[in-house]
Structures are given as C-alpha cells and as structure tokens.
C-alpha cells in the first residue's frame, strides 16, 4: 500500500519521496532534521529546494541517496524503493543518481590530480579500459568548459572556487546519470561564474536529459533554473508550487519572508533590518504545531496546537499553513 501523498502525483515521477523522516542522535537527544517530507520530481523537471541554514536540505539530499538512512518513509527512484535496497543493488542504483556538493573545494581530494578525480567514478563502476576512461574524462571536461590539456595534470588547490565547481560537475556527469542532486552548487561562487555555472547546468540538463533537485538558499538563483520550487523550514515542507506563481503570490508567511529578505544591488534600498525576528528554534526541540510559529506574524493558538498539512491554495501550489496569504482561509 502506498502512503497518501499530499501533493498531486505527477504522472511519471522519476523521484518520489514519501513521508521521509531523518534524525540524528545528539547526546541523549534527537535532531529532527527531516520530518515527514513528501515530494515528487517529474522526469526532466528541475525542482528547486530553498530554506534556512540547518533546515534539513542537505540531509534530505543525502537521505535520497541513502548516504544517511532515513528513520522511516520511502524514496522511490524510477518506481523502486531505495530505502529497501542494500549492497550491490543499491550501488547500481546510485550510479544513476549523483550529488554535487555545497563546498566544491572541500569535496575534491587535495592530493589527487584532476584527471584522476574525474576518472574515479569510472574506475569504481568498472570501466577497465584506461584509454576509454581518458576519452570520457576529456569529453566531460570540455563539456563543462575546461581545457582538458591544462587541467588534468593539476591539483585542486591550484583552482579557484568556480573552477573547482566545474570539476565537480564534470565528475558528477562522467557516469552519465539520470538524476543529479545539486546541493548549493553556486553558493560559494561569485556572480559572473554563478551565471556561467547556472547556464552550464541548464545546458547539461538539456544535453544529458537530466532531472535535477536543485538545493540553494538564494531565491533568485533557484527561480532562474527551477520549474517548481519547494520551501523547507526546520525539517518540514512549507510550500511547493510553480516557480513564477510562488514568487508572485507566496501563500506561506515564511516564503513571503524569504522573498522580502533578498539583498537588492541598489544602495538606495536599505536592507530590511533582520526581518526574521527571534532565534531560529532548535531542531532538537522543534515548536509544537507549526514549526514556523515562533517567528510568524500570523501565528495563533491553532498554529500552536495543530500541525498544518500541505493543501492546495492555488492550482498546483500547496502550502502547509493554517492562515495562508492566498487561497481559502
């Protein structure tokens, strides 16, 4: 029996996450990193995932890949539940899913040459022919805009952040995956390189027919590449909907707050004085009811007592809020 999912099932999702729960033990307490999150990503779609530092975005990404085993819930990739898989079966499935990390520099082994770093996934997956590996590395470096001749023999520390991220993208693409989880792929990069990497990801997506889960904290960046956007807060999903619609008419107060806090490159616009009031609550003891209630201007008793479920507030737009900014109250 499938668990009920509180979002429209896309006809043919490549990835379906159902009621995923991920926790970390911390002393004798528990960090509730991801609490009952459900998501669908259609084949060929880019789903953007935004939310505050520590809200569980990376944990969700890692749990999708089974790098961190969830406490409960399912991760259906192409119809098969990854949470039920072990050993070789899981390793084979994992090849179809790749992860690009938040920190490009730290995710490259400092003592290995770039050529070897990119060839490593090929070695692990059993491509024995060294000539063939060399060719694949050469091709993928070219695809991400690096000159293979200049790059393969060098070490990671000789490259700046943007170049390291291109290398990470090349390493993720070399096995020809179907699905890539991009965990803050441009957060550490400056604007001009960021624009290039975003354009590159869009190009690679088209060229390799990829489906993407794009994690970032910058809303403008997420909007630039995503078909739909999901907003997370303290382990829970707040809102999900088509990108433009979500930005034009956010339903969840947290989404609205995020949109307001975007720094604008105009010295006449005074930055909003820390819009998010109060301390971010601890995921060790999350607030009862709605987890955003301690910082929400609309919070009332109901928000304290009842966990809001995701419901449709506009066509294809879902929000978990008792008093959404749009839609039926």
């Amino acid at each position: 029996m499938m668990q009920p999912v509180s979002q429209p099932a896309s006809a043919d999702p490549l990835l379906r996450v159902e009621n995923l729960v991920v926790e970390y033990p911390l002393g004798n307490k528990t960090v509730h990193a991801v609490s009952s999150v459900s998501l669908d990503i259609a084949r060929g779609e880019t789903l953007g995932l935004v939310g505050e530092s520590g809200c569980g975005k990376s944990t969700l990404g890692r749990a999708v890949m089974q790098l961190r085993r969830p406490v409960s819930g399912k991760v259906l990739f192409d119809g098969q539940d990854l949470t039920a898989m072990q050993g070789d079966t899981l390793r084979r499935m994992r090849r179809r899913v790749q992860l690009i990390f938040q920190d490009p520099i730290a995710s490259l082994n400092p003592r290995r040459r770039i050529g070897d770093i990119i060839a490593e996934p090929l070695v692990i997956s059993g491509v024995k022919d060294a000539k063939k590996r060399e060719q694949l590395v050469h091709d993928v470096l070219g695809a991400v805009g690096l000159d293979p001749q200049l790059v393969t023999g060098r070490l990671p520390h000789e490259f700046s952040g943007g170049q390291c991220q291109r290398i990470c993208i090349a390493r993720a693409l070399v096995l020809n995956p179907e699905f890539i989880i991009c965990d803050e792929p441009v957060s550490a990069l400056d604007v001009s390189i960021r624009a290039q990497i975003l354009n590159l990801l869009e190009e690679m997506k088209a060229r390799y027919g990829l489906t993407l889960l794009f994690i970032a904290h910058d809303l403008a960046v997420v909007k630039a590449v995503s078909d739909r956007v999901a907003v997370m807060y303290l382990g829970r999903l707040c809102e999900v909907g088509p990108s433009e619609q979500l930005f034009a008419q956010p339903a969840h107060p947290y989404t609205a707050l995020l949109i307001e806090a975007i720094p604008v490159p105009d010295p006449d616009v005074r930055p909003a004085e820390s819009v998010a009031v109060g301390e971010p609550p601890s995921p060790i003891a999350p607030p009862s009811g709605c987890r955003f209630r301690t910082r929400c201007p609309r919070a009332d008793q109901r928000c304290r007592d009842e966990v809001p479920e995701l419901r449709e507030v506009a066509p294809a737009q879902f929000a978990a809020c008792h008093h959404p900014l749009i839609g039926p109250a």
């Binding site: 001009s192 290039q196 975003l198 909007k223 630039a224 433009e244």
Partner: peptide, 18 residues
Amino acid sequence: LAAIPKIDAKPHTPLPAI
C-alpha cells in the same frame, strides 16, 4: 551587476554571464 539573477526574471532565462 548585469550577471546577477534578478528575482523578477522568468525561469530558464539564460543569464547575461560575462
């Protein structure tokens, strides 16, 4: 300044990267 993704731009608009 031009290369910054603008919040009011449409999704999948190629950015004016340098």
